[in-house]
Amino acid sequence: MSSGSKKSPSNGFEKAPTSEEEQTKIKEVRRLIGQLPDKLSIYCSDACIARYLRARNWHVKKATKMLKASLKWRLEYKPEEIRWEDIVNEAETGKIYRSTSIDKHGRTVLVMRPSRQNTKSIKGQIKYLVYCMENAILNLAPDQEQMVWLIDFEGFNLSHISVKVTRETAHVLQECYPERLGLAILYNPPKFFEPFWMVVKPFLEPKTANKVKFVYSDDLNSKKIMEDIFDMEHLEFAFGGNDSMGFDINKYAERMREDDKKIPAFWTREHPASTALQPSLPCALDSINLNSVSVSDASDDEKTDCSPSLQVESEAVSPGENMVATNGSKHAI
Rank of each mutant, 00 (worst) to 15 (best):
V29E: 12
S318G: 05
K68F: 11
A276M: 05
T275V: 01
E179D: 05
T64V: 07
D86A: 15
S314I: 14
G94I: 11
H331W: 07
L220S: 14
A209D: 07
S222D: 00
N250W: 07
V88D: 11
I185L: 06
V111A: 08
V324E: 07
E313M: 07
Q23Y: 13
G328F: 13
M1A: 14
S287L: 11
K95E: 06
C176E: 03
N291D: 11
T93I: 09
L53M: 14
I151R: 00
L36S: 03
G4V: 15
N139A: 10
E28N: 05
C44E: 10
I288N: 08
E313R: 06
E90I: 03
K330T: 10
I122Y: 10
N139E: 14
R83T: 09
I137N: 07
I102S: 13
E81C: 06
W84L: 08
L204C: 04
S159E: 06
A332G: 10
V29C: 10
N242M: 00
E80S: 14
M232N: 00
G182Y: 02
H171A: 04
L158K: 00
E28Q: 15
A50C: 10
K68M: 13
V212I: 12
I263W: 15
A136Q: 02
E227K: 01
F193L: 15
C44I: 01
S99T: 04
L75V: 07
V163M: 04
M1Y: 13
C132Y: 03
R113Q: 05
K6L: 13
Y177A: 02
F239L: 04
K330A: 10
G328Y: 08
W58K: 09
L183W: 00
T304Y: 15
A63Q: 12
V293H: 11
T326N: 03
S19C: 13
M323L: 12
G94T: 03
P279M: 01
L53W: 15
A265L: 11
W58H: 13
E134Q: 01
F192N: 06
W267M: 09
K95G: 10
M66T: 00
N327R: 11
P264K: 00
F266K: 03
Y177H: 08
W58E: 11
D297R: 15
K61Q: 14
S307W: 09
K61M: 06
V215K: 07
P195Y: 05
D301E: 08
Y177M: 01
N188V: 05
K224D: 12
E20D: 15
M323V: 12
E14P: 08
V130I: 14
L285E: 12
W73E: 07
S299P: 12
D103G: 00
P264F: 00
A69Y: 07
W197S: 04
R113N: 09
